[in-house]
Structure formats: structure tokens, C-alpha cells
């Protein structure tokens, strides 16, 4: 009888336990490229049906609340910078020497012509709060032990995705891909992770490739060239003054 009780309790507890684990893993993956604070150098290559361009970006981040991104190349855009502070996004335009705050109605617009939206900058960091996370698959795929997590938005969450699935390798906790579905359940875009290497003292996927499903010939490729973690940034670093001055 006592054993039965324990067995029942365990059975009841285990989904809860699994849920917490799933959350922890997704949270861990989410923090991989960010740490508590980070300072990185990125190249972003955007390929569309009409043009293709490559940009060099300098990135600072602190937790999930703050990020500063400055374009260093090409020369035409150099100095253009984006500041994310909480749910707000500010852009600095050196050509006209003005800072403008992005209206919330335009959060869904592409960021600097890439396949990321401004929303991605703001909302991605809230995955843990906005989504219920479940393990959709746990086993071997292509000879690698992986989890597939299914992220469903909480009823009250103001998010644009209907569902996100993400695959993570079990032995090194490295993400391999994430797929984003709209409210109708159709795949909208896929992010694949690759070139896992040690940067700033930890193993990270150095390359992220975004492919919009409706335009399979287009893509945005983000490559971390340099990455340092826990660089001791304060919230005060992420100011409009810093946005203007180019952050150095």
C-alpha cells in the first residue's frame, strides 16, 4: 500500500518534473548565446530575391532586457544602431543624426532588411514566460540523442507564433533547429544552428540560418565572429546617449 502511494505520487509528480526540466533546458539554450552579459561581433548575410548584402555588427547584451546592436559595415549603414530596452526599440540614424523610437505597430517589420523582425529582438527573450513547454520527442534521430520541445503560447501571452518546435542534442545541450508556426499551424520559418565551437569559454552554435518558408531561396545567416560573456555591463550602459555615441 505504501509502495502504491509512492508510485502514484511519482506518477503524478513526473510530468511536473519533466515540464520543469523542459523549461530549464529551453531556458538554458535560450541563454547560450547571451550569458548574463555578452559582447560579440557578428556578420549578418541577408539574401533576398532582389538583393544580397553582408553586414558586420557589434552586439552588447545584458540579460533578456537590454541589447545594443551597432552596424559597422557596409559604410553606407555604418553607425546605425538599435537599442532594445525592455519592450522598446530605438534606432539611431547617423545620416540624419536622430534617434527614433519604433512605434509598436511596426514591431513586426523586418529588422535592417533581414528575416528577423523587431519583435524577435524583444520577444524571443520572453520564451520562458510566454510559452508552455513540453517534450514532443525524446530519442535518437540520425544517430544523435535529441529532445524535441513543443512550445505553445500561454492563453494570455501576446505572441505572434502559434507554436514553436525546437530540437536540442541531449549530450551537449546544443540546439540544432527551431521551427516557427503561425496560428493556423503552418510553418513560417526555420532557424538552423551549426558550426558548434567554443567561444568566450563555452560551446555555442556559431552560425544561425533563418529561412522563411514561403521564400525558400531567401535567408539570413548570422555568424558569431567573436563572443565574450559576463563582460560586466550595467543597465545604465544601455542608454540613448550610448546609442547615439556608438557604444565604445
Amino acid at each position: 500500500m505504501r509502495h502504491l502511494c509512492i508510485a502514484v505520487l511519482l506518477a503524478l509528480a513526473s510530468p511536473l518534473h519533466a515540464q520543469r526540466t523542459a523549461r530549464e533546458i529551453v531556458d538554458h539554450v535560450d541563454r547560450l548565446l547571451r550569458g548574463n552579459s555578452s559582447r560579440g561581433e557578428i556578420t549578418m548575410e541577408v539574401v533576398t530575391a532582389h538583393w544580397q548584402r553582408s553586414m558586420t555588427l557589434a552586439v552588447w547584451s545584458l540579460g533578456t532586457e537590454y541589447a545594443l546592436i551597432r552596424i559597422d559595415a557596409p559604410p553606407k549603414d555604418a553607425g546605425t544602431a538599435t537599442l532594445k530596452s525592455g519592450t522598446e526599440i530605438w534606432n539611431y540614424l547617423p545620416r540624419v543624426d536622430r534617434v527614433i523610437k519604433l512605434p509598436s505597430s511596426l514591431m513586426g517589420q523586418a529588422w535592417m532588411g533581414s528575416h528577423f523582425t523587431n519583435d524577435d529582438l524583444v520577444k524571443e527573450s520572453r520564451i520562458i514566460e510566454d510559452y508552455e513547454i513540453a517534450i514532443g520527442f525524446d530519442g535518437m534521430r540520425d544517430g544523435v540523442r535529441v529532445w524535441e520541445f513543443v512550445l505553445t503560447p500561454k492563453p494570455e501571452a501576446a505572441v505572434i507564433w502559434g507554436r514553436i518546435t525546437e530540437e536540442v542534442r541531449q549530450d551537449d545541450m546544443m540546439p540544432t533547429w527551431a521551427r516557427y508556426y503561425d496560428e493556423r499551424g503552418d510553418l513560417v520559418r526555420e532557424i538552423t544552428f551549426s558550426e558548434y565551437q567554443r567561444m568566450g569559454g563555452r560551446l555555442v552554435p556559431a552560425v544561425m540560418t533563418v529561412v522563411p518558408t514561403d521564400k525558400p531561396n531567401e535567408r539570413t545567416v548570422i555568424r558569431y565572429v567573436r563572443l565574450a560573456f559576463d563582460v560586466g555591463l550595467e543597465p545604465s550602459f544601455f542608454s540613448l546617449r550610448r546609442l547615439r555615441s556608438g557604444a565604445e
Binding site: 533576398t48 538583393w51 548584402r53 540614424l93
Partner: peptide, 8 residues
């Protein structure tokens, strides 16, 4: 049209 962020 060239992918840059036009501003003026």
C-alpha cells in the same frame, strides 16, 4: 530597394 535602411 537595395536592402539598406533609407533615412533622410
Amino acid at each position: 530597394a537595395d536592402g539598406s535602411l533609407a533615412n533622410d
